[in-house]
Amino acid sequence: MLHCRQQCDGNHPVWGVGELDLLQLSISGLANGCVYGLIALGFVLIYKATEAVNFAQGDFMMFGAFITIWLANSYYLGINFWVAVSIAVLIMGMLGYLLDMIVLRRMFGQPQIAVVILTIALGFILRFLAGAIWAHEPQSLEFPLAGEKITLGGLVLGVEEVAVILVTFALCGLLYLFFSRSRLGMAMQAASQNQLAAYFMGVPVKRIQSLVWALGGMVAAVAGVLFASKGAIDPSTGLLGIKAFAAAVIGGFGSLPGALIGGIIIGLVEPFAAYGLPAGYSQIAPYLIMLLVLIFRPHGLFSQVQKKKV
């Protein structure tokens, strides 16, 4: 590798990547992947609990980011960053809850495709609403630690990227504790594993489903804050929800750790594909992986398919 680099002198991008660059690329890929993973997590959360796919999940992320930008950036309201993030997370949670309670519950008994179209339309509404309120130009969140660098033996890392990775893992740990320890988390698990049985045990399934939507909205808001901290965001950024959808499929739609890992896989593959492949092909990479997974492991990498005993 070293030998080659001297020979090729970095003219070709592939050979120009040294070990440090490789590591740096991996870390920025990992940071991107975390955001994808969090959006995918939202997909899976809602799908498992309500059997509806929220195609507006990416737009939830974008909207959460814009609420935070609006609250925190100095040229808007300029309130304290952490307060702004908490408020944005709460607002997105409420949006998710009300959406389920007011709109989606009425769709009960309608065919799946109706819910799909509804959430796609909802994504459009959020996108244009955000554009109307905050304009269509890319903006980035004024992250308090922005621009600072962490140097680790020659490796220079942006604080933002490290923060994204740490926050994602902390959030996942928190979600794990919530689902395995808390009463509400157990009820959500129960309702998603066997809705009928949850009913019979006295779990208020409808309210639980609304709360899962709330959780989906809150996770999306966190993903949005992370995304906007490390780069600019504009209202159409929500479309990367499709990429996150691919991540969820790769992880095996229905597995929470799978969703995160699917997101990280896509995040890691993207920058390397951009280096190694001709321009344009890197955008195909996530979907190519999804296709391969669907062909060779149709239930995804971490499927939780259970056959019911009769």
């Binding site: 129960a190 594993q193 066997n194 049985a197 019979f200 006295g202 939780q304």
Partner: peptide, 14 residues
């Protein structure tokens, strides 16, 4: 009053 449903509706992954 509790209902034990037909066909053993348990929570399979718990």
């Amino acid at each position: 009053m509790v209902h034990v449903p037909e066909g053993r509706e348990i929570f399979p992954l718990m």
